[in-house]
């Protein structure tokens, strides 16, 4: 137990925690959306994120940036980021939709039991990860250093970097946009209707399959944003990069209350922060452990999460 480390670096640990938590939150949204509508843990979502990290990298390589190239000027930088963002979001969304169309929809048509969905989900996850693993020789890939980390200001003695501000800013914007979309728009109303009662929604003229497709698209888009931020912050990707992040993002979703969009943000940030405190207290080895222990403890004492499942329908 290293209390000096924890209290001495409290502000710094908090800020890195928030930054990592923001990425968890973006991915957690995908789990929460799909779970809210389909009651399915979409294991393949971690691979949706992984595809995003790779496609962003390939976009940058196509634009002529590699690990050794100098940081570009502001104009080309914005171009590179936007291009990477668009491609990553598109690729992630396409991956998510492909999984839905190829794997899940045929099962729904056959009225398969829930176990079949879960098994298919894990199968899809491994097919995606392995096809990337085999085609990339399972090597890690470094990112071009597009935005060199620079301290913008200090807060309570903790340095806040430009990348951290970018991550938190982008996450908040995406969160608000998604929240508004689901709560205000016509299509969002469809999502909420199907989440509450799929059969009744269908009777009221909601196209269930279209809503499900939309949910996968939205989850994929958010994962794409998360993937780009991950690339900028951590500077590498690998075929199995999604696994641990996916696990933590799912924990974050449960933490906030699965099926609850705002819960996903809260859960993500909280998990990121708690994880960093634990790393300060017990040492870095225990960091990945914390999220998992938190998940188990939470399931014991408050399985509906902090904000509650917005739909509040627990299934046996």
């Amino acid at each position: 137990m290293n209390f000096d480390e924890l209290f001495g670096n409290f502000p710094a640990l908090t800020i890195t925690g928030l930054e990592q938590g923001a990425i968890y939150a973006l991915i957690a949204l995908g789990y929460t959306l799909v779970y809210g509508v389909l009651r399915l843990i979409n294991f393949a979502h971690s691979e949706v994120f992984m595809v995003g990290t790779f496609t962003a990298l390939w976009t940058w390589q196509a634009l002529g940036y590699d690990q050794n190239s100098a940081a570009p000027a502001l104009g080309p930088l914005i171009l590179a980021i936007v291009a990477g963002l668009v491609v990553a979001m598109a690729a992630s969304a396409v991956t998510a939709v492909t999984v839905e169309l190829v794997a899940y929809r045929p099962l729904r048509r056959r009225n398969a039991p829930p176990l079949a969905f879960l098994i298919t989900a894990i199968g899809a996850s491994f097919v995606l990860a392995e096809s990337f693993g085999i085609s990339t020789s399972r090597a890690p890939f470094g990112m071009p250093d597009l935005i060199p980390q620079k301290t913008v200001f200090t807060l309570f003695g903790a340095a806040v970097t430009n990348v951290q501000l970018l991550i938190l800013g982008v996450t908040l914007i995406m969160m608000i946009a998604l929240d508004q979309f689901v709560n205000r728009s016509r299509m969002g109303r469809g999502i909420r209707a199907v989440a509450q009662d799929a059969d009744t929604a269908a009777l009221m003229g909601v196209n269930k399959n279209r809503v499900i497709l939309l949910v996968f698209v939205l989850g994929g888009l958010m994962a794409g944003v998360g993937a780009l931020l991950w690339d900028l912050r951590f500077g590498y990707t690998k075929f199995n990069v999604g696994f641990l992040i996916g696990l933590k993002a799912f924990s974050a979703a449960v933490l906030g209350g699965i099926g609850n969009l705002r819960g996903a943000l809260l859960g993500g940030l909280l998990l990121g922060v708690v994880e960093n405190y634990a790393a300060g207290l017990f040492g870095g080895d225990w960091k990945d452990f914390t999220g998992f222990v938190l998940l188990i403890v939470l399931l014991m004492f408050r399985p509906t999460g902090l904000l509650g499942e917005s739909l509040g329908r627990a299934r046996a």
């Binding site: 190829v102 794997a103 098994i119 199968g123 491994f126 097919v127 392995e130």
Partner: peptide, 11 residues
């Protein structure tokens, strides 16, 4: 990879 595909197809 192969068994992942097999699982999806089998299901």
């Amino acid at each position: 990879l192969v068994f992942g595909l097999v699982v999806i197809v089998m299901m």
